[in-house]
């Protein structure tokens, strides 16, 4: 099976940091974003680690992914779709699919031994594309 990234939330770690700061700040979004930009990636890493430690995975749902899966059997798609109802598949032909999901689901797949190889193939594609490198490193040690 081949995984190709079609689209992702722009600057995913910053998006997660924005969602996290939204919970604790009364400021307008532009001020939160400016603060996050000023504090930089190390602070985003800190927030991400806090979210994972506290199991506040809701903030990670804003990191969305659109993927092309080529050569995936219908049965395998059914298994993933049944286990992860927030993963949405669109059939393109017998073996090719569009998959829409968020990074929370990716973490949950990674933590489930049955689906870790599938999650790992997505993480590998993200890594190859240089997408969410900070996220990959904190969430998957990849």
């Amino acid at each position: 099976m081949k995984v190709s990234l079609v689209w992702h939330s722009p600057s995913p770690e910053r998006v997660i940091a924005v969602a996290m700061r939204r919970c604790y700040s009364t400021k307008p979004i532009e001020e939160i974003q400016a603060e996050l930009d000023q504090k930089g990636e190390e602070y985003w890493r800190y927030l991400l680690m806090r979210a994972l430690q506290d199991k506040s995975l809701d903030v990670i749902e804003h990191y969305c992914l659109e993927l092309l899966l080529e050569g995936m059997e219908k049965n395998d798609v059914s298994h993933v779709a049944m286990a992860f109802p927030f993963a949405k598949f669109m059939m393109l032909n017998e073996k090719d699919w569009l998959l829409s999901m968020n990074a929370r689901t990716l973490i949950e797949m990674w933590r489930d031994v049955r689906f870790k190889p599938f999650a790992a193939s997505i993480v590998e594609e993200l890594k190859g594309r240089g997408v969410g490198l900070l996220f990959n490193s904190v969430a998957f040690g990849a």
Binding site: V6, W7, E66, M90, L98
Partner: peptide
């Protein structure tokens, strides 16, 4: 609106697989 999915990126994939674009079918994506 902070961001949204790039619909053109999805349409490119559909074209590459000879699948016609149907708005209703991509609503989850």
């Amino acid at each position: 609106l902070l961001f949204h999915t790039d619909l053109e990126a999805i349409k490119r994939v559909l074209r590459s697989k000879n699948v016609s674009f149907d708005p209703e079918k991509v609503l989850d994506h």
